[in-house]
């Protein structure tokens, strides 16, 4: 396979790959931002006093977690037009990715908050810190420390999940591989190049995850 590997074709298609690499980055970046926002809101609802808010968040999170992203993507892609809502494909894709990862972020943040020892809250109360001060200075910084690794893990999943957008004809890295394959009948060149670009993103996020872990020195004793 490799003796026939045609680097010239890859070079020829490099502008397309770069353009699609950028598309994958901004589609994932936008969805990531949306997902964290949705996750914080859903988590706050899930931990709230109101039974109704808790149930709404619960149904949302369980439904997303129990069905595949691809089915969710098709649900919006074929479903929104049948309700008369016409959106560009990229926006449908970003909405599906946002809502999907949002449910996972809600669970990650909740686990991070609930992992904090109750003694921490008591110590804050005993020093006379208010609820908001306890959240701001004691709970959230520790929750962030607890969650930074799973958060980045979910970001990696999100980037990989964005490859499914190629199935609704959005131009991104996987689509670039499909284009090269169908135009030149060279699947090896097409898909292995695509894979290499994903690996670049993966290793960058993984290195960042390791680095951030080291910065949080206090976690080492736990």
């Amino acid at each position: 396979m490799l003796e026939g590997f045609n680097f010239r074709i890859i070079w020829e298609y490099m502008p397309l790959y770069m353009q699609c690499f950028a598309a994958t980055l901004w589609l994932s970046g936008l969805s990531l931002f949306g997902a964290v926002v949705v996750g914080i809101i859903a988590c706050a609802m899930r931990l709230s006093q109101s039974r109704i808010l808790r149930s709404i968040a619960g149904v949302y999170i369980e439904t997303i977690r129990s069905t595949p992203l691809l089915a969710q993507l098709y649900f919006f892609y074929f479903g929104l037009p049948s309700m008369g809502i016409m959106l560009p494909e990229w926006l449908t894709g970003v909405i599906a990715l946002t809502l999907n990862s949002g449910a996972y972020y809600a669970e990650i943040i909740r686990a991070g908050i609930q992992a904090i020892d109750f003694g921490q809250i008591e110590a804050g109360i005993a020093s006379g810190l208010s609820y908001i001060q306890r959240m701001r200075f004691i709970i959230l910084p520790q929750a962030l420390g607890n969650t930074i690794r799973p958060m980045l893990g979910q970001a990696i999943i999100l980037v990989k999940d964005s490859s499914l957008l190629s199935l609704i004809s959005i131009m991104e890295l996987t689509r670039a591989g499909q284009v090269l394959t169908s135009e030149r009948f060279t699947p090896a060149e097409g898909f292995l190049t695509t894979a290499a670009f994903y690996l670049i993103i993966y290793y960058m996020l993984k290195a960042f995850s390791g680095w951030s872990e080291k910065r949080l020195i206090f976690r080492e004793a736990h």
Partner: peptide, 26 residues
């Protein structure tokens, strides 16, 4: 509470703060 110091069995120091930061937060 600001006039009472409380010391716990399990210390409950804030793990993300230095010793000095632990004492100055309140």
């Amino acid at each position: 509470r600001a006039e009472i110091g409380f010391v716990f069995q399990s210390f409950n120091l804030y793990p993300h703060m230095t010793a000095l930061e632990n004492t100055t937060i309140a």
